[in-house]
Design a protein around this nucleic acid. Structure first.
Lengths: 161, 161
DNA sequence: CTATTGTTAGTAATGATTCTCATTACGAAC
DNA sequence: GTTCGTAATGAGAATCATTACTAACAATAG
């Protein structure tokens, strides 16, 4: 499985941003870089911790404000949260192309899948249901290699979140 | 599009419940009925309001406790939350069969789709990635008929949650 | 009947997120 | 470079969803 990283390589440069009516300030640039520079589908809190390592006075509110802004501008995406353990916190994704996910139902980790997206599925489903469909996303579930290694020996202690 | 309702029709009767070590008490029975009796993928809060109409002293804590319990017992499911407006609250589903969803990206409403699930996709993806996949779920996105009718005239006022 | 365990309402506590507001940074015009 | 309007920020309060805790009560086993 190839992990899609897709750093930097989206068409929006600093000029585009300025044209759109907002500046690429220090905190904002760092927040964007952090989300784009990882494939961990980070939470706001994780981004905050990372940003602080370089700009220590950045507040959590600023991180949230800018994550929302970047989502609105289409520069990053917000994932539908995961159910079960670790739910409750929003996850963000610097890879704005449509792609599928594999979610480990044990540890809650999410991996991008690089498999091609079947656009014809949208058309077929639209035809059958009469709905206007813009796109779809497939979520695969199972146990990730790491959790498999841990071989369910320890009877799965049910931990919340 | 057919809406899957699937009330009542799962193999677990009252005896099974008792055997499993918990009683189908008044509040608990109502909570289960409410989730199974709707296709709205309700939040805990919605269930609470409904239950109260019949048993007014039921507390919100009881609703949460029992929803989690019913999920653990496999009698209902918890959905991966939706992104964007209205995110932040867990959604539950009385239809425990694997099925796909259509999410309106405008109002956040979720509909069940009755289309067959392609199990071979799991096998193919597992072969390609080496992951152990138990199942998948397809989320379709678009605007629902109701929101389409509202024809984006009113420039979409961005409401949060 | 009595000990044990399950269930509850009510409420406090927590975690994630948003909001408010006073302050600061920036860019354009003078 | 001073001034002015606006965008952006940090800090903390407020809000929302959820969980944890507690004391009381009910069902059940022995």
């Amino acid at each position: 499985m190839r992990i899609i990283t897709n750093n930097s390589a989206n068409g929006l440069g600093a000029e585009t941003l300025r044209r759109r009516g907002f500046r690429l300030t220090g905190p904002r640039r760092l927040i964007l870089e952090m989300v784009q520079g990882t494939d961990r589908h980070p939470t706001a809190d994780w981004v905050h911790r990372q940003v602080r390592r370089r700009l220590s006075r950045v507040s959590l509110g600023t991180v949230y404000r800018n994550l929302r802004l970047l989502v609105e501008e289409g520069m990053i995406k917000e994932l539908p949260g995961i159910a079960g353990p670790q739910a409750g916190a929003a996850r963000f994704d610097g890879n704005t192309t449509i792609h599928h996910h594999f979610t480990c139902s044990e540890c809650g980790g999410i991996r991008d899948l690089s498999e091609a997206v079947d656009r014809s599925l949208d058309r077929r489903m639209a035809a059958r249901t009469g709905l206007r469909i813009s796109h779809h996303r497939i979520e695969f579930y199972g146990r990730c290699p790491a959790c498999q290694a841990r071989q369910g020996r320890r009877r799965r202690s049910r931990k919340r979140r």
